[in-house]
Amino acid sequence: MNAPVPNAAPRDPTVEPAAGAMLTVRIRRDDGFQTFTLARRPAQTILDVVTAIQREQDPTLAYRFACRVGMCGSCAMMVNGRPRWTCRTRVAAVAEGDALTLEPLRNLPVVKDLAVDMEPFFTKWTAAHGAFEPGETPLGDFAVVAPDSPERRAVDAGIECINCGVCYAACDVVSWNPDYLGPAALNRAWTLINDVRDQGREARLDAVSGDAGCQSCHTHMSCTEHCPKALAPTFAIAGLKRETARTALRRFGARHFRRSA
């Protein structure tokens, strides 16, 4: 499920830039686009590019990174219009000719240049009840979870999310409806719905329903298309749609029919 980044490798890894080749990089900054020119290098990543620009040309350029190896998810930005991890994206794979356009992640407020404020993303993660709910009293014994049970498989399919925000930037529904919880928060909720130890199922199903919730997803699958971890939030959201519908019908039946029976 967690395949390596599918589109991070160069289209043809044997093709390296010619000696002396230059790269033209347009970067959206607070006052519009600014263009930089720098040398192309073998196996150069987008993160290498912005780092070189900051070190050699403009130390005021703001961007964010931490691990540089595709583990932390903090270096995501829009590269030629698509959200990507810059540390795992090679220039050779995405440059249009010798040109790149870099912008901050879509759907999030910009702090400065290429660095965005992730607070709305994590606020929604919390609103979707993204934290494990152990309940008032702990379970009497260890929960036995068979590795091949349907619930465990559903959890496995989405558990590797590192909250990089790429799916959130790719989601058109978030751009139309700023209240929409977004693919990452809903994917997280789905992993907890399938966690047999979790005690917050009913409240979580309520939290992911409604005009900001899973029913607003249009199934465009942009999140699944762009996820650098090759996860499929679309299917997690589809699972939430089924589960919230079942629960709503069960509650409706209990409210209107069982009482009179």
Binding site: S209, G210, Q215, T244, T247, A248, L249, F252
Partner: peptide
Amino acid sequence: MSPLLYVAQRG
């Protein structure tokens, strides 16, 4: 959209 409206629309 509430889950019941969702069910109504799909149904």
